[in-house]
């Protein structure tokens, strides 16, 4: 089984910051807007390098999204930055009308997604944002798994013409994808080959899926792990090719099981090849305060939860 090495824990938001810094140097049309969370979003370096292209809007997210839509008129590529909660639910109608329906080339970059935001608790831990964003016609939805991939995705979305929701997080997690790796929007990455079960994971759950696959392998279960960084457009083919071999699937995400990756995968399977599926996700609940590790454990979002789901789905084949 192919294994991956953690080159050192890093936060995905810093991958975004590094990508944005690079874009500042390579693409003069890139502008950045932030709603009073510059440090949290790791936008400081872009701001220091290009003060004329950095727009501090204050605690006023609705205005930020509208401004970003307007800034595209004249050729700029705006990247907005705030927490995932304030990037989506708080400004849904602004994104819907001024960005998505208007077809504006805005990149909505959202940190602190999911329960791993930690101690701040449920007011700040959105578990519904993937659903909100994937329902918007024309919106691309990306949830990256580690520092390197987040940096690569940040660079890639600048080249993509159209609105994008880029979701990442706060905690330092394993960094295992290649440095300066290629990022193709909508193209899943098969991380391990396996015959018994497909595990399709996104975001912080990708590393957990690899950890699960390692343990499962020792127990004689061969898991095929697929990193679905792009939830929309979904790589239907990668999923269907894998389940045609394994005949069962587990989806894993730091998001509500209603509206998330799991439901998107279920739709593809229902339409093409009905397959037993188990969902590793939060069960229609809000989060709470705690450390990221405690919360991942309590809400069933780790390697152990994935292994349990695999064992369950194997029995349903």
């Amino acid at each position: 089984m192919k294994t991956y090495t953690n080159t050192g824990n890093k936060d995905t938001r810093s991958g975004f910051g590094a990508g944005l810094t690079e874009l500042g140097k390579t693409n003069e049309n890139v502008v950045a807007l932030c709603a009073d969370l510059t440090g949290s979003l790791k936008m400081d370096e872009f701001k220091a390098n290009h003060p004329e292209r950095f727009f501090q809007v204050g605690i006023a997210e609705a205005n930020m999204i509208g401004m970003a839509a307007g800034m595209t008129i004249g050729g700029k590529i705006p990247f907005t930055g705030t927490f995932a909660n304030f990037s989506t639910g708080r400004v849904y109608d602004q994104i819907r009308q001024s960005v998505a329906y208007s077809g504006k080339n805005v990149k909505i970059c959202a940190s602190h997604a999911g329960v791993t935001l930690g101690e701040d608790g449920a007011t700040h831990q959105i578990l519904e944002d993937i659903g909100l964003m994937k329902m918007l016609p024309g919106m691309t939805v990306i949830n990256t798994c580690d520092y390197n991939q987040t940096k690569a995705a940040t660079l890639a979305i600048a080249e993509h013409d159209g609105p994008v929701y880029l979701r990442f997080g706060r905690p330092k997690v394993a960094n295992f994808t290649p440095e300066n790796g290629e990022f193709k929007i909508g193209k899943a990455v098969k991380l391990t080959e396996g015959n018994d079960v497909t595990i399709v994971a996104t975001g912080h759950l990708v590393w957990e899926a690899l950890e699960a696959a390692k343990d499962l392998n020792e127990a004689g279960i061969s898991a095929e792990v697929i990193n679905i960084h792009t939830i929309k457009p979904l790589d239907d083919k990668a999923i269907l090719d894998s389940v045609s071999k394994t005949k069962c699937i587990v989806t894993a995400e730091e998001h509500n099981y209603l509206g998330g990756l799991g439901e998107s995968v279920a739709r593809v399977l229902a339409e093409n090849n009905p397959t037993p599926q188990e969902f590793v996700a939060t069960q229609d609940t809000f989060g709470e305060s705690g450390t990221p590790a405690q919360l991942m454990d309590k809400y069933g979002l780790n390697s152990e939860a994935i292994q349990k789901a695999v064992k369950k789905v194997l029995k349903r084949k």
């Binding site: 205005n63 509208g66 307007g70 800034m71 008129i73 009308q97």
Partner: peptide, 13 residues
């Protein structure tokens, strides 16, 4: 309520 924000963005550009 959204148009002024968009106009400001266009003005910044």
């Amino acid at each position: 309520g959204q148009g002024m924000s968009v106009a400001i963005g266009a003005a910044e550009t």
